[in-house]
Structure formats: structure tokens, C-alpha cells
Write a protein that binds this DNA or RNA. Structure first.
Lengths: 214, 214
DNA sequence: CGACACCCTATTGTATACAAATTCCCGCGG
DNA sequence: CCGCGGGAATTTGTATACAATAGGGTGTCG
């Protein structure tokens, strides 16, 4: 996608993530085109992508609405993420380069710094945490896997979750990252896979505990 | 997607699967529009979808080519399918309705009949085998999972594989299906998951043995 | 008062025209 | 002969116009 399409995608995604377009609200191509300052064509492409990523849902008569996830959806999403990202970690462990390992270390150092700040710098934590996981997915060198994980939208959940995380959970996360780095440096796929699985499951449990309403 | 888009998607996908558009060959929107008898607009949508499903790849300058999978790609694809579809089987085991179970039984009966014929009716086997797996995926009731598995293109591989399958492999497949039905009827998620995992892994091994060149 | 049919409007689907970008080829000069 | 512009041609990106279709509202009839 080139400029306008990309812009429309980011814009609409932003509307959904910030809650400006709340779950269940209808989306019309023309209105979005106006908001984004482009024509319907790039908006349509953006909407197709958002639909594939399940940010928006389509009724039988082709009308689009902002997706509304219930707790079952979220649980399923975390389960899939745990499965796929653990697989990515296993692949990454046997393929990752020294440079990428250094990137991971640097990234986790920034995460640790963000946590150590008072108050904890949650925004930086989110950005760097995401980057950490992206490095691993990239190191797994599987376009299929990367595509699937991209579709497993995580931002809205992470955002809601992290705001409720305590220092303890953030620290534990950084510690698990450190163990992941160890596992990968040791080229131990099984270890990396196991750590990643529990890492994501714990994130889910923390989320469930913090936001039991779904 | 409505009529024209859908038609374009099916048409282009057909070109790729039959080999009329061989791996690595360039795809231009206008040529495809001519072939499909529609304008570029629905062709573009079809191509986006095919790109997401990795049937086609896009260069840095937005030109599209038929994807060319090597043996590593295929192995990765089977691994992911085994993982995701086993998860689908586990979910299906705890959710499937009596009616869907009957559908599975009927479907497997048709598979058995196709195998019993002399010579074995491979075309019917392929269609019904696909349907069998689709019923399970549908019973898993996870749109995310369904989307991902749809993207895990299987047709070209299955096609290439089944043509080389012997009666023994086909029979074993039907037998494994029967065991899957048992596991689901017993509402045994772990059993269903295990059977599905080995079912797909065996298919992969048979494929590798039959087509070691990739 | 309720149900049904019809029309009108809102929204999406498709085609086409035009703009931007990229590639390819040809001619030129070293 | 090779490398290097430069421009034409091909190809994709975007906008807009028009067609088709679904939904809602209203009026009428039972």
C-alpha cells in the first residue's frame, strides 16, 4: 500500500484504538474518506485490511462495524498468540543473528529503564515491548507467521492491560524477556518456546485479573 | 466481496493453482482484468487478498508475481497447519453439535467410497477431504482461526501430493478421520488435538517422500 | 391497530479517467 | 564496447461518476 492507503489504514486504526470509533459503531466509506482526506478507493483497501485483521466486521449486507470483542474472543486471541509466538521464538532461537540478539538486549535494557523510572514510563514500556516481540518474529524468518501475528491485534488489549499493570508485573515481564534472550543465545528452541508460552499466558492472566469484565 | 471481486479471486487463484500462471511469473492488473472480464478495481481487491494469503508476492515497487514456494516454505506451512488445525480440533471437540458430527461421518463415508473405487476416485477424495477439515474448522467457532487456516493455502500441495498417494495412504487418512470423529464424539479435546496433529504430520511426511524435490 | 407493499435514500460495487511512479530502451558520449 | 542520461511506455495509485442493492419510512389496506 502506498501513501494514501497507508494513511487511511493508520487513521482508521487509530480511531478504533483510541475509542473514537467505539466497538459496534458503523463505519461508512464516505465518512472515513472525508476524515482521512482521501477518496473512497484507498479507504476501501484500508477497510479490507482491517477486516482481515478483525478490527472491523462485515454484516451479510456488506456493512462494516467496529469489532466488539468479548472475553471469549480475547481469550482465544491470547491462546493463538501464545501458540504462534512460541513457535516463532523456537524458530528464532535456531536462526537469530548476533546482531539481532544485541538488539533484543538493548531493547530489554530500555524496557528495564522505563520500569525503573518513577513513575514507571508505561508508554515507553509499550513501545519497546512491542519492538522486542517484533524482533523475535522477524528473526523467525517466516512470512506466514509474521502475517498471522500481525493480524492478532494486540495493541488495544495491551493498552488496556498495561494501564492496570503494577510494577511487579512489568518487572516480571522484563525478567521473562531476559530469560528468552538467554534461551536464544543458547540456541535452545524448546526453552525459548516454553518461556514465550508462559510469558504470554501470564500476560493474559494478569489482564484477566485486572479487567474481569472483559 | 461481491460478485465480480469473488469471480476475479477465484479466477486468478485458479490460474495459479493450475499452473497457467507459473511461480515467479509477473501479474499485471490490466491483463488479469481482461482475462476475468471485469475492470481493474475488483482485480485489485482479489490481488490484495491473494497477497495476504501469500499466493502472490509484491516487490518493493509494487509489482506482483506468483509466489514461488521452496521446500522450507512448504515445511513451515505444514507445521503451522498442524498446530492451528490441531487447536481447531481441540476446540471443535468441546463444541461440535450432533448434526455436525453426522456431517463428518457422512463426509468420511463418501471418502471411504471414493477410496474403495477402482481406480480410487482421487478427485472426490480431495473435495471431500477438504470438506471434512472445513467442518471441523467451522465447529471450532473461531473466526480468527478460520481466517488463518484459510490463508494456509493447501490446495496446491494437496493436489500435488494426492496424485502420488497410494491406496494405503488414502486409507490411512480415512482411518484417522474416523478416529477424529470418535475423539470428538467423546468430547475429548486432547485426543482430537493429538490425532489431528499426527494426521497432518503424516500427510506432510507422505508428501515429502513422494516429492523430495520440493 | 397491525401488516404489507412500495418508493426513496443511503451505501456499497464497479468502471473509467487521470496522475504518479517506475521500468525499459534508445541514443549519446567516453 | 560500456556506462549513462533521458524520454517514452508500461504499470500502479487515486479520484470520481455511475449502477446496483439493501434498509427504512410511509401510506394504505385489511
Amino acid at each position: 500500500m502506498s501513501k494514501a492507503s497507508e494513511r487511511a489504514y493508520a487513521e482508521i486504526r487509530g480511531l478504533i484504538l483510541t475509542g473514537d470509533a467505539p466497538p459496534g459503531s458503523p463505519l461508512t466509506e464516505e465518512a472515513l474518506a472525508d476524515i482521512c482526506g482521501v477518496s473512497r478507493t484507498p479507504v476501501r483497501e484500508a477497510l479490507r485490511r482491517l477486516e482481515a485483521e478483525l478490527y472491523v466486521v462485515r454484516t451479510g449486507s456488506q456493512r462494516l462495524f467496529v469489532a466488539d470483542w468479548n472475553s471469549d474472543d480475547l481469550a482465544e486471541m491470547f491462546t493463538l498468540r501464545a501458540m504462534l509466538e512460541a513457535h516463532a521464538a523456537a524458530r528464532a532461537a535456531s536462526r537469530i543473528t548476533a546482531a539481532a540478539l544485541d538488539d533484543l538486549r538493548a531493547c530489554n535494557a530500555r524496557i528495564a529503564a522505563a520500569i525503573a523510572a518513577t513513575p514507571a514510563d508505561v508508554a515507553t514500556f509499550l513501545v519497546e515491548n512491542r519492538r522486542f516481540h517484533e524482533i523475535i518474529i522477524s528473526a523467525a524468518a517466516s512470512p506466514r507467521l509474521a502475517t498471522m501475528l500481525a493480524a492478532l491485534v494486540e495493541q488495544p488489549v495491551v493498552r488496556r492491560t498495561a494501564a492496570r499493570y503494577g510494577q511487579a508485573e512489568l518487572s516480571r515481564s522484563a525478567h521473562e524477556h531476559a530469560e528468552l534472550i538467554q534461551a536464544m543465545a543458547a540456541r535452545d528452541s524448546a526453552w525459548a518456546q516454553a518461556v514465550m508460552t508462559s510469558h504470554i499466558r501470564r500476560a493474559f492472566h494478569a489482564f484477566s485479573a485486572a479487567a474481569p469484565e472483559g
